[in-house]
Write a protein that binds this DNA or RNA. Structure first.
Length: 471
RNA sequence: UCCUCCGUAGCUCAAUUGGUAGAGCGAGCGGCUGUUAACCGCUAGGUCACUGGUUCGAGUCCAGUCGGAGGAGCCA
């Protein structure tokens, strides 16, 4: 008999003979008709388990009766219309083979009951067997496929930027050190410093915090490029939206300005939403029912409407003019607090909002300096953009890059950075410079937004966070 | 890192003014049933996070440590 994935079995013709393989979600027994068992089997290919009906006349029915949640099984049978109410079709089993028993069911951690997400995080190797984490895994996969497909259709090349970096000037946060030196016997130079010349790379090295500087080099010849890979931040962040290891999409577009940047991000979000609605409705229905009501309507809205754009200066005016009581005061020139961002996207606009042109003093050195008086702002701004989304906050951070060497140099100096560290980055401005723009999109935050999952640690298979590196 | 809350059975939680440990779910066994968050009965299961202190007596009060959650900052 042909082995069929369960998602295909649901669509097959009644009467077909088939074999399915998977893990038991639940089993219920009945004494009717001399005894029969209903076994719900899931193989991860779709949300729903399929119901297997095993009758007492199976040669190994005594064994079948002992099957419990978590067992792996192989079932031969015939697909038939279900006599019961919970499902359209089911499999009348002609053979049920147990491949792997659950040893000592009393200790099986992922037993058939409701568990808290906090507890499931402690058994991350088994939580994938639950409805929620199966759905998260499928949605996460679908989103990453959508992004690659969208970027390919927009003529972007995927560039694999390094994970280990010898550059200490990426400037996006605390870095994890990479070293093969013996901690118990660290070589020192004459003046008592650690002698990194004896380390693996002959210099200090770290895990990357961003592929942006590297990918800008490829944009300066291939025009449209992006990275999609893991990044690392050694910040002691204990929140529902930060990880020490997370995945980021970083497009970089040559001959482009801030608005081209926003248009790309907006198109990416639209594509992700509409692809999910088309491909993963089974999982979305679960999230809408059990995790966040209204999720599907929100994704439908995202799939149709472009992102709303406002300037930082306008955002400040909205916040100053509203009746909301904020813990922190709103003031032009200081960064918006989380509560301010949430108000804008969740209460005022009720949709994703791109906020552009921030005061230069609160943004990075490489962001392009705007002309004095842009947007009627009271101070000088840079061409930066943050895209804020309901429930998550900041999902995208980007900018048009400073392509003018003299302006870049004075910004590096102004911020107290060492110009020598940026020699190759500056070369891009010396040799055929070009206006360009890019952004970083936090992939896990996108998954959160598309599933309604509240804690970012529950949308990545094995979360890395302070004091969390088990598995 | 800061603020708040929490840590009791495999899981989710109770335990009165400090008086010596309890339920539901899960698991095992039995009953019933084309079942599907099933239902009924029985059984097993505890170093009350750890260390120290107060007390005749601490799950309960105090101090410290460790761990978790939510919020803040940093950011994606």
């Amino acid at each position: 008999m042909a082995w069929m994935k369960i998602k295909d079995a649901f669509k097959a013709q009644a009467g077909v003979e088939l074999t399915i393989k998977g893990w038991v979600r639940t089993k219920r027994d009945s004494k009717a008709d001399g005894g029969l068992s209903f076994i719900a089997v899931n193989d991860g290919t779709c949300f729903d388990p399929i119901q297997v009906v095993a009758r007492h006349d199976l040669s190994n029915y005594e064994e079948v009766a002992k099957i419990g949640t978590g067992c792996s099984v192989e079932v031969d049978g015939v697909l038939v219309e279900s006599q019961g109410k919970g499902q359209s079709v089911e499999i009348q089993a002609t053979a049920v083979r147990v491949i792997g028993w659950v040893q000592d069911p009393d200790t099986y951690p992922a037993s058939n009951k409701r568990h808290s997400f906090e507890y499931l995080r402690e058994i991350a190797h088994l939580r994938t067997r639950t409805n929620t984490f199966g759905s998260v895994a499928r949605v996460r996969h679908a989103l990453s496929q959508s992004i690659h497909r969208f970027m390919d259709e927009q003529d972007f090349y995927w560039v694999h930027t390094p994970i280990i970096t010898g550059s200490d000037c990426e400037g996006a946060g605390e870095m994890f050190r990479v070293s093969t030196l013996d901690f118990c016997n660290i070589p020192k130079t004459d003046d008592g410093q650690v002698d990194f010349s004896q380390d693996f790379f002959g210099k200090e090295s770290h895990l990357t915090v961003s592929g942006q500087l590297n990918v800008e080099t490829y944009a300066s010849s291939l025009s449209r490029v992006y990275t999609f890979g893991p990044t690392f931040r050694a910040e002691n962040s204990n929140t529902t939206r930060h990880l020490a290891e997370f995945w980021m999409i970083e497009p970089e577009i040559a001959f482009a300005d801030l608005h081209d940047n926003i248009e790309l991000a907006s198109g990416m979000l639209r594509t992700c939403a509409s692809d999910l609605l088309e491909r993963r409705m089974d999982d979305l229905e679960f999230f809408d029912l059990r995790i966040e009501k209204g999720l599907i309507d929100r994704l439908k809205m995202i799939a149709e409407a472009p992102v709303k754009t406002i300037t930082y200066t306008e955002a400040i005016k909205i916040l100053e003019g509203c009746n909301e009581k904020f813990e922190y005061d709103v003031k032009w020139g200081s960064d918006m607090q989380s509560e301010h961002e949430r108000y804008l996207t969740e209460k005022h606009f009720k949709q994703p909002v791109a906020v552009i042109n921030y005061p230069k003093d609160i943004k990075a050195f490489y962001m392009r300096l705007n002309d004095e008086g842009t947007d009627g702002a009271p101070g000088q701004t840079v061409a930066a953009v943050d895209i804020l989304v309901p429930g998550v906050g900041e999902m995208v951070g980007g900018s048009q890059r400073e392509e003018r060497l003299d302006v870049l140099d004075s910004r590096i100096t102004e911020m107290g950075l060492d110009i020598e560290d940026y020699w190759w980055y500056r070369d891009l401005r010396k040799y055929g410079t070009v206006p360009h723009a890019g952004y970083g999109l936090g992939f896990e935050r996108l998954v959160q937004f598309c599933t309604g999952m509240q804690n970012i640690r529950d949308v990545i298979p094995f979360p890395r966070a302070p004091r969390q590196a088990e598995f």
